[in-house]
Amino acid sequence: MSTLANNKMKVQVKSKQDEETEAATVESGKIVYDTKDLNLWYSETHALKDINLEINEKEVTAIIGPSGCGKSTYIKTLNRMVELVPGVRTTGTIAYKGKNILDRSFKVEDLRTQVGMVFQKPNPFPKSIYENITYGPKIHGIRNKKILDEIVENSLRGAYIWDEVKDRLNENAYGLSGGQQQRLCIARALAVQPDVILMDEPTSALDPKSTLKIEELVQDLKKEYSLIIVTHNMQQAARISDKTAFFLNGEVVEYDKTNTIFTNPSDSRTEDYISGRFG
């Protein structure tokens, strides 16, 4: 138990140091999500234990770990989608731009408007491509046809799918391939111009080529958005993220620059996981 506590301390110390060095070199590094002492229970199961994480703006933060480690739960807590599961309880705080989103007075719809989400399996609505994109703007009261047209084009361009679908905007989204559907879902998230995009294993259901395209897209998106990506694919985390958090059994084992995590992890469990010894 004592080594565990030690490790955690090390992690925190390290990440703080990191912050300082980063703040010195890069002018960004403003914190978008500040998680403090987050605990989460599904009924009796303690799924997240004392999570402390600071996530930077306009970076790609990867969350890795074996299945059941709490990484998906954590990302779903960031836009409170986790509340759709009955019997969920949380303690601690998650400050989003300085405001605690776990506070009851924080309107969850506002949060989710500013924080977009892309899911594990592509989940376009059974509607036309055009209607999929305009869904978000419409529910938030934008009705002007010209503006909607513009949003559709910009969002689809932003998700690298405009050229493929511009001639069939009124066709059902179910006619698209899996990779196209996922990029459509990204475009749908972009349509309301969020600040953060959460991605829950966005490529796990896709073929390698589509995966590569989405990884490329993620690199481009981070210029404008803060991205948090859950992935079970360590190469992917290494390729696309700036920082990486390693989750194990509901705890953050290590959180550091991606480079450091993959070349010089400070925790033996991280090393074991990365070198494929478990998970």
């Binding site: 506002d110 408007t113 500013q114 703007p137 938030h140 009261g141 934008i142 503006i147 513009e150 949003i151 910009n154 361009r157 932003g158 349509a191 309301v192 111009q193 969020p194 600040d195 690199q219 481009d220 998106l221 210029k223 404008e224």
Partner: peptide
């Protein structure tokens, strides 16, 4: 690779419109 950021700049400011509608 700057087409994305351009797109957002040119675009109508959707997030602001949404905030006003709210």
């Amino acid at each position: 690779m700057s087409k994305n950021s351009e797109a957002k700049k040119e675009a109508v400011n959707v997030s602001e419109m949404i905030a006003q509608n709210k």
